[in-house]
Design a protein around this nucleic acid. Structure first.
Length: 512
RNA sequence: CGGAGCGUAGCGCAGCCUGGUAGCGCACCUGCUUUGGGAGCAGGGGGCCGCCGGUUCGAAUCCGGCCGCUCCGACCA
């Protein structure tokens, strides 16, 4: 039992924060609502970036950087958009500081036009695209940016909702509505594949109802994940913006028919919130659990010895294991550059930035076990005098708690890769099983209510989309329509709220 | 922005009622013994007691004001 982490059943909320604290992923900042992402947390984000960025480029996108500040007038140009973000945008009104009467500081020069710190960048991309796009030959424009954004939230939670967060936002412009729609769904597929293959987080793909869609979009599609407490988490969104922003920002092009047309735009994004999803999908009462593909530290080698004369052979054995897992050259490079350090990390290959660490700190082995366990390191290799004698070591698999005796001669890079694949799959299967067991059906409103109150997970039911009904249900149950899943059973039924006939089933849940 | 609670060492807290040298546990540092699932002993370092003012010979403690944080609600990726 971890003594610095409360159990999930005891207090799920506190457990989540304890896991983050114990793994040293993030810390609160001096400014309310913001967070410091510490190296171990940021390395996870970097791993996500690497994998996602490759997927974006494979689908034809390029990266660029747009500025942090947006003229206030820009936000006004799209009616729904301004309404959606007005309340949570941070406004820059002054430049410079001067001494105030009480000896402190106060803002000096007032700006002619206030500037907004981007809550998202549709307007800025729109303004630039209108300049860049003249002809259908200029289309499509497929740009992504990795950036920070700010939304002045009233209540914040580490990773899940902070005032400033990191994300990527893709912004594309297309010749036809159909192309834009294909792009919107393509990127949703990219997100779903990323979530399931890389994060081992199963997701449901679907469409948002009108009341849940992005302000300014024609349609919003999403991937929804289910957390261990039965609450849903929106893990990514992809929007078909139609010509809403093209109209607002005059993104026009001369078409193949020699006529002026409005471009059709899309946008899509995922954020550091995914780290929250990762934590709440896989972690347990002992702390963080990371899928092998995500973990910056893939494994930790913990030597065990009592007597001084045991130390040499044990460490030698550890070094041999590292050499077999990571390769002689990388081990040598690590030894030269990290001479004298108590923690030596060795890259497992030349591209992934994943490493195996040797822990020779002057601590009891038990302490080290907890140390790496709480940080979610997928594999631990324990090597003591008895192992050295037998030519074996003890493998502990974080995700399953499994303990295996492995012969040193069998433990090479390919063995580690296979172990990683096996564990990655086991984690996804476990999460998928949990998710599927927590999709319940409701055939009446009382049933829906009860399921939502019990936090049963996703509640599937017939529903005729209606903003008023959704608002009412939210008020009474805290539950919302998470999405209209692409995967439908077909046929028709009676709407759970109005009793009217409908062909659509939706997923309700209480959400983060 | 409304309701409640809390600000004392890095973290968690006691002390406040009844004013009189700043405490405890964990963490940290040194040494010795330990070391296969959170060790023991000894020694040590660390404080604008949230801030400003008032009462008093004397304030962490009493009084007034301010600031900050946490939780609960409305808003949200």
């Amino acid at each position: 039992m971890a003594r610095n982490i409360v159990t999930r059943s005891n207090n799920y909320n506190e457990w989540y924060l304890d896991v983050i604290k114990a793994a040293q992923m993030a810390d609160y900042s001096p400014v309310k609502g913001c967070m410091v992402i510490r190296p171990t947390g940021y390395a996870i984000w970097e791993a996500m970036q690497r994998d996602l960025d490759r997927r974006f480029k494979e689908t034809g996108h390029v990266n660029a950087y747009f500025p942090l500040l947006i003229p206030m007038s820009f936000l006004q140009k799209e009616a729904d958009h301004v309404e959606g973000f007005a309340m949570e945008v941070a406004v820059v009104t002054h430049s410079g500081l001067e001494k105030s009467a009480d000896g402190g500081l106060k803002p000096k020069g007032e700006l002619a036009e206030p500037l907004l710190i981007r809550p998202t960048s549709e307007t800025l991309f729109g303004a630039m695209y209108s300049q860049w796009v003249q002809s259908y030959r200029d289309l499509p424009v497929l740009i992504n940016q990795w950036a920070n954004v700010m939304r002045w939230e009233m209540r914040t939670r580490l990773f899940l909702r902070t005032a400033e967060f990191l994300w990527q936002e893709g912004h594309t412009a297309h010749e036809t509505y159909q192309e834009a729609q294909e792009e919107t769904l393509r990127m949703l597929d990219v997100y779903a594949a990323f979530a399931e293959e890389f994060l081992a987080v199963p997701v449901v793909k679907g469409r948002k109802t009108a009341s849940e869609k992005f302000p300014g979009a024609d349609a919003t599609y999403c991937i929804e994940a289910l957390m261990q407490d039965g609450k849903a988490l929106q893990a990514g969104t992809s929007h078909n913006l139609g010509t809403n922003f093209s109209k607002a920002f005059d993104i026009k092009f001369l078409g193949r028919d020699n006529q002026q047309h409005l471009a059709v735009t899309t946008s899509w994004g995922v954020s550091t919130r995914l780290i929250g999803a990762l934590i709440m999908t896989h972690s347990d009462d002992e702390g963080l659990v990371l899928p092998p593909k995500v973990a910056p530290t893939l494994g930790a080698v913990v030597p065990i010895y009592r007597k001084e004369e045991e130390k040499g052979p044990v460490l030698e054995f550890c070094t041999r294991l590292l050499e077999q897992l990571c390769g002689g050259e990388r081990l040598k490079a690590a030894q030269e550059r990290q001479k004298g350090r108590e923690l030596m990390s060795v890259f497992t290959d030349s591209s992934s930035n994943q490493s195996v660490v040797l822990d020779i700190r002057d601590d009891r082995p038990v302490e080290k076990h907890f140390h790496w366990e709480q940080r979610g390191v997928p594999f631990r290799f324990e090597i003591g005098p008895r192992d050295v004698e037998k030519g074996t070591f003890v493998l502990k698999i974080r995700a399953t708690g499994e303990k295996r005796f492995v012969e040193l001669k069998n433990a090479d890079a390919e063995w580690l890769a296979a172990l990683a694949r096996e564990t990655q799959q086991a984690m996804f299967d476990k999460a998928l099983k949990f998710r599927d067991e927590h999709i319940v059906e409701a055939s009446s409103y009382p049933e829906l209510k009860e399921a939502l109150e019990k936090r049963s997970g996703f509640v599937r039911c017939w529903f005729k989309e209606d903003a008023t009904a959704e608002a009412k249900i939210k008020e009474e149950t805290k539950g919302t329509v998470r999405c209209i899943p692409f995967q439908q059973t077909g046929g028709s039924g009676k709407c759970i709220f109005s009793g009217e006939a409908t062909t659509e089933q939706v997923l309700f849940s209480v959400a983060y």
